[in-house]
Design a protein around this nucleic acid. Structure first.
Length: 431
RNA sequence: GGAGAGGUGGCAGAGCGGUUGAAUGCGGCGGUCUUGAAAACCGUUGAACCUUCACGGGUUCCGUGAGUUCGAAUCUCACCCUCUCCGCCA
């Protein structure tokens, strides 16, 4: 959520940001109009309440309170009427109200883009920042990971469909072990970089989901239990970011780094027909997520080091990758600036997203109410929140299967992973 | 799921329906004292919002939401959460 004060002070900046994202900026004017109305209504209510309180204080001070109350009766009754009327007017547009139009408009404004974000509408307009490693050259025909996995007996999509329908996969034997090895590897590396490991709830309340900006009209539908009103997390960014919701941290608490391995659940309603085969896009996948809470002035640098942390994992796995700066039209609702880390997928002959690192500035912190105090005397300020995958387990698995495939159909395990996997190779016979 | 207890400021813990945003203690901050520190003593110390160029003024907040009242932390109702015991269970 944006700061209403910022919208008042610099509406043009907000409009420009909306336009760059390809979103109609007209709601900014509507917000300004409603906000003006609301504030004058509020002032009216407060003036009347102040008068009423003065009368009550008079009664409280009087020796004969009943008598005093009786004497002030006419004024009090008159005030009560006026207050009720004024309150009704203010209540209509109060942003506190769940169905307030002002609130709805405010909540649906995306974060303000960082000035460094490149213009553009689609993936094509993303700007490559750097490339690391060279895609491996194959002297045989590369196979897609599902073919490799199924013939090795470590991936099973048919039975997954039997159990759960489309967009599910089953990891078996060495496939499951490799996945577990990756999780361990990722978490160990995160720990080495001072991230604190967390096992968060995988189901969260509507409020929590709302607080990190996942529940908006721009969001894809999530799995949920309507009866319990609990939502299955689409990423552990949600519980990790909201961890310190409604808290005021002290400056010594910052920066705060958290890492969580968790399953993630997504309906992928908007992705019909995309990546229908294989592990690329599933209703359930696993991920190690990295989250930072920082002071505002350092979030820019933190985004770089967070991205570097994600990349380092790929470098260590010797997987060729690149970093792209997302263009204005591609950046998520919460984010001011996002780098995607993309890994080389041989069967597609291109790089695919394996981590998305975002600086959400104070946007989520304002919704979730995560603040800090620089000094015991200073006012609390909102922290900045950042998140990135480190990494998506399923997609890393894809990358390993495809990039490390051998002519005989076996898989060589990346060096960095061998001690975790406890082996060097996956072969047909080994399952 | 059944039975009970409880939710007050950073924490602990008071609070006959009336100048209570809230005693007291701890902690925090500032100061006195000290070569320095500790101790002691003094002072100060919640948040959001509205209004003002500013000084300041005002409103709201004691789990949440309604209600009674001129006036509610205090009374009524509903809901939520936490804890204890029982049942079930990985």
């Amino acid at each position: 959520m944006l700061d209403i004060n910022l919208i008042r002070r610099d509406p043009d900046r907000v409009r420009r940001s909306c336009e760059r994202r390809g979103i109609d900026p007209s709601s900014v004017d509507e917000i300004l109009r409603l906000d003006e109305q609301y504030r004058s209504a509020q002032t009216a209510v407060q003036t009347l309440l102040s008068q009423k309180n003065a009368h009550s204080a008079t009664i409280a001070r009087a020796d004969d309170k009943a008598e005093a109350a009786k004497a002030l009766r006419p004024q009090l009754d008159d005030l009560a009427q006026q207050i009720a009327a004024a309150e009704e007017r203010a209540e209509m547009i109060s942003p506190q109200r769940a169905d307030s139009p002002l609130r709805a408009l405010l909540e649906n404004l995306p974060n303000i883009l960082d000035s460094a974000v490149p213009d553009g509408k689609t993936e094509e307009d993303n700007v490559e920042v750097r490339r690391v490693g060279t895609p491996r050259a194959f002297d045989f025909e590369v196979k897609p990971h599902w073919t490799i996995g199924e013939s090795l007996g470590i991936l099973d999509f048919e039975r997954a469909a039997k159990l759960a329908g489309s967009r599910f996969g089953i990891l078996i034997g060495d496939g499951a072990r490799l996945s577990r090895a990756l999780i361990d590897f990722f978490l160990d590396r995160a720990r080495a970089k001072s991230y604190v490991e967390v096992v968060p709830p995988y189901l969260v309340t509507r409020r929590t989901m709302w607080s990190t900006g996942q529940l908006t009209k721009f969001s894809d539908a999530m799995f949920c239990d309507p009866e319990a009103d609990l939502f299955m997390i689409p990423t552990s960014e949600v519980p990790l970011t909201a961890l310190h919701g409604e808290e005021i941290l002290s400056i010594e608490d910052l920066p705060r780094r958290y890492a969580a391995y968790s399953p993630c659940f997504r309906k992928e309603a908007g992705a019909a027909g995309k990546d229908t085969r294989g592990l690329m896009r599933q209703h359930q996948f696993e991920k190690v997520e990295l989250v930072w809470l920082t002071v505002p002035e350092s979030s820019g640098d933190v985004l770089d080091s967070l991205t570097a942390d994600a990349e380092a994992l790929l470098s260590e796995l010797e997987l060729s990758h690149r970093v792209v700066a997302l263009c204005a039209g591609e950046i998520g609702f919460n984010s001011a600036k996002t780098y995607d880390v993309e890994v080389w997928i041989p069967s597609e002959g291109r790089y695919r997203e394996i981590s998305s690192c975002s600086n959400c500035t104070d946007f989520q912190a304002r919704r979730a109410d995560i603040r800090f105090r620089r000094d015991p005397k200073k006012k609390p300020e909102f922290v900045h929140t950042l998140n990135g995958s480190g990494l998506a387990v399923g997609r890393t698995l894809i990358a390993i299967l495809e990039n490390y495939q051998q002519a005989d159909g076996s898989i060589t395990i990346p060096l960095a992973l061998r001690s975790y996997f406890n082996g060097e190779k996956i072969e047909r016979s080994s399952t």
